[in-house]
């Protein structure tokens, strides 16, 4: 079945369009809505966005592929992003990454077989004063260690998201 926006998402896109003087400016916010709705941006999804905003598909693809946070393939339920930049590195982010790799059995860029976790090493998350920092989906986890990150993964694997995902 062809993809379609939910009525709620469609209303959200309509509200987004009101904020800008042209439709192209609504593209990035609309891609965010699309990614939330469908999990990632398949070609079909980008075409849906192009149709909804009445933009050429090439414009949509050009923008969607420029930005690293738009997923061009599916990601796990928990997107574990370990900062590897300088301030986190100085405070031991390599040990955090190594602990996640060992715990999940995946390398950066890979997703666990059960589809639960995707590991990624990312650039500076602007929380350097509480390094090392790990972002899981929307939430930041600061002052991480090899032990604390494993505890975090255990908690998430058990479905406990009470302390943020």
């Amino acid at each position: 079945m062809a993809q379609a926006f939910s009525p709620q998402a469609d209303a959200e896109i309509e509200a987004i369009l009101q904020r800008y003087p042209n439709r192209l400016a609504a593209l990035i916010p609309t891609l965010w809505v699309a990614q939330r709705e469908f999990g990632w941006l398949a070609e079909e999804t980008m075409e849906l966005v192009a149709t909804r905003l009445d933009l050429p598909p090439a414009k949509v693809i050009s923008t969607a592929t420029f930005y690293t946070m738009f997923h061009k393939k599916p990601v796990g339920r928990y997107h574990v992003q370990v900062c590897k930049n300088i301030s986190c590195y100085l405070r031991g982010s390599d040990e955090v990454t190594a602990a996640v790799k060992q715990k999940l059995g995946v390398a950066p860029g890979q997703t666990t077989a059960d589809g639960n976790f995707t590991l990624e090493e990312v650039e500076c998350l602007a929380a350097c004063g509480r390094a090392p920092v790990v972002q899981v989906n929307a939430d930041y986890h600061e002052w991480q260690t090899a032990e604390s990150v494993v505890a975090l993964l255990d908690r998430l694997a058990a479905g406990d998201t009470s302390g943020g995902v």
């Binding site: 930049n85 300088i86 301030s87 650039e123 500076c124 602007a126 929380a127 350097c128 004063g129």
Partner: peptide
């Protein structure tokens, strides 16, 4: 768009 490594004040 705070992203300069080492910078976390606008946050």
């Amino acid at each position: 768009d705070e992203g300069e490594p080492g910078t976390f004040k606008d946050n």
